[in-house]
Design a protein around this nucleic acid. Sequence first.
DNA 1: AGAGCGTAGTTGAGCGCTTGACTATTCCGC
DNA 2: GCGGAATAGTCAAGCGCTCAACTACGCTCT
Lengths: 168, 168
Amino acid sequence: MTTQVSPGAGPAPEPPVGEPRWLDADEQRAWRAWLYSTQLLNDRLDRELMRATGIPHAYYEILVQLSETPERQMRMSELADRCLSSRSRLSHAVSRLEERGWVRRQECAEDGRGLLAVLTDEGFAALEAAAPIHVEGVRTHLFDQLSPQQVTAMRDLGETLLRHLDPG
Amino acid sequence: MTTQVSPGAGPAPEPPVGEPRWLDADEQRAWRAWLYSTQLLNDRLDRELMRATGIPHAYYEILVQLSETPERQMRMSELADRCLSSRSRLSHAVSRLEERGWVRRQECAEDGRGLLAVLTDEGFAALEAAAPIHVEGVRTHLFDQLSPQQVTAMRDLGETLLRHLDPG
DNA sequence: AGAGCGTAGTTGAGCGCTTGACTATTCCGC
DNA sequence: GCGGAATAGTCAAGCGCTCAACTACGCTCT
C-alpha cells in the first residue's frame, strides 16, 4: 500500500548508489501486512475502549503510568516521555483529565519550574473500571490469535525495533 | 504501559470465568514492545515524510492506491476501504487533495450516486517525488534493522492478525 | 408507479494533535 | 552574584479525524 511507484519488483538488482532501494515483492507483502495489522489493531482497541468507557487510549496510558508509580504522581516531562508524547500534547491531555477530576497538577517542591501530575482517587477508579475492558481487547484481538512462538517473535521484533527507534 | 492495574503477575492462575484475564509479565513485555515500537515507527515515518514532502502518510496512501490502479482512478468507497479509512475521512481528505490539484472528483457513469477519485498528473508527480523518501524511511527504520528471519516473522504476524481483524 | 429501504457520498461541530512562540525558573561559568 | 543558555511547561492557530445527520440516487416489492 505504500511504497512502490516505480519499477515492478524483481530479485533486488543492487540499485546504484543514490537510487531508491525499492522494496521487492516479499518485502512489500511483509510491510503491508505489518502496517495494516498494526493500524487495525490500534484502531480497534482504541475504539472499543472509547465506546465502553469514554477514555481514549492515549488518556488511558497516562492514567496507567501514574498508577504504576508509588505515589501515583509524576513530573509532567517524565510522564510525557513514558507516554511517547510531546510535552505540549501531554499538557493538553492533562488539562482535560483535570476537567474530569481524574488528575490534578501540583507544584513541585524541588524544582520551581516543574509540576507534578497526580492521579486522584476518581482517576484511579476510572482506570480500574477501564482496565478489564482494555485487557480483554488485547487478549481477544492479539494474544488469542497468536501461538506462543508468535508471541515470542512479536516481542523480539518489538524490542529490536525499539533499540533503533528509542535508544533511551 | 497499558494494561495492569490490579494483581501483579504470576503464572496465569486460570482466572474464574468473568474475571479479567490479566497479562502476565511476559505478555506485558511483549505487548509493550509491540505497542511502543509500532507507535514510534509510524510516528517517525509520518513525520519524516511530512517534513520532506508536506504529505501526511494518510494522504500518501491515497495517492499510492490510485496510482496502482490501471486508470489511476477508483470509486470513493473502494478507495476508503483500501486505505482503511472511513468514508467521511476519505471524503475530507480527497477534498484537500483536490485543493492541491492532485486528485479530482469525477461523476461515475454506471452509478449516479457514485464518484470516482482520479489521480491527476500533478498528483502522480507529487507521489513520484515522495516515494523515494518514504521507501528510504521504511528501509532504514524497519528492514535494515531486521534479519531475514525477523522479516518473515513480521509478515507471519501481520497476516495472522489480519485474518482476525480484517476478514474481507 | 411509488413507498420504503439500502447504498454513496458529503457536511459541520467538536475534539485532539502539532508547531512554534512564549513565560518562568534553574543551572553554569565567570 | 550576574548574564546567558538550557529546561519545564503553557498556549493559540491550524489541521485532520470522528460522529451523526443529511442529500441523493438505486433497488425491490407490491
